[in-house]
Design a protein around this nucleic acid. Structure first.
Length: 223
DNA sequence: GACCAGGCACATC
DNA sequence: GATGTGCATGGT
């Protein structure tokens, strides 16, 4: 797959959806919380937990770390996996407190490579969650790979269904300019594409990539 | 009433 | 290194 193909996909999705101005969240910390809570979970459920956190005035690393397990479980219950996510959220908050004085802004000042490595060392933060935080909360230009990215590229014959995270990410990094705004917009567009058209049961008829990209056919090189 | 959702850690082979 | 499993709620 060429860079031209990737840029043409971006143009088509941009034309269809318009500017995304993602991620849904008011502050860098709220964005990071959302990234952890949305693991294998629909965003509608995540929103309810974030509303609970806001109502409980818990939207800061120190507040969450100070909260009891009981409180966190109840607040996070609507987002599912509430025991797992309480632990993961607390681990992230402790990391921000211990290494960055509780400040997301200070954390964002750390250079990309060591920061990504550090985030991957936090319990509950894997490649996708780390990159979500880096891209949308810290303003680092890194391309986020998710289930939708893998699925839509596989459907169009560009990659294997089980392509690894790093190799798929390299594919984008190698073919696109390093551009924070482009990476933020592109991933947001892919999520919308996924939600609307690229579910396990595909709805390719009205897909914005449809005229060129029919199911099972690779996109052509654009003139 | 299945099936699914913007993963990850951990056990086992 | 590859593969399998638990985690939990709410929407379709």
């Amino acid at each position: 797959m060429t860079g031209n193909t990737l840029r043409e996909i971006f143009r088509r999705l941009s034309k269809h959806y318009g500017p995304m101005n993602w991620w849904p969240g008011d502050t860098p910390f709220e964005i990071a919380v959302g990234a952890i809570l949305t693991q294998n979970t629909s965003w509608t459920n995540v929103e309810k937990a974030i509303v609970n956190l806001r109502r409980g005035r818990l939207l800061s690393p120190k507040r969450i770390d100070a909260a009891s397990d009981e409180v966190l479980h109840e607040v996070l219950r609507p987002s599912g996996y509430f025991r797992v996510k309480s632990k993961r959220l607390r681990s992230f908050c402790r990391y921000v407190i211990e290494h960055h004085g509780g400040s997301m802004e200070r954390m964002a000042g750390v250079p990309f490579k060591p920061l990504r490595a550090a985030l991957l060392g936090v319990h509950g933060i894997g490649p996708e969650t780390a990159d979500d935080i880096l891209l949308y909360a810290c303003g680092k230009p890194v391309f986020v790979i998710d289930a939708y990215t893998r699925r839509f590229l596989h459907r169009h014959g560009h990659v294997d269904a089980d392509v690894g995270y790093a190799s798929l990410q390299d594919l984008f990094h190698d073919r696109l300019a390093v551009d924070l705004d482009l990476y933020q917009e592109y991933h947001a567009l892919i999520v919308n594409l996924g939600k609307d058209f690229c579910r396990p049961k595909p709805r390719c008829e009205k897909c914005p990539l449809g005229p060129l990209l029919k199911a099972g056919q690779p996109i052509g090189v654009v003139p």
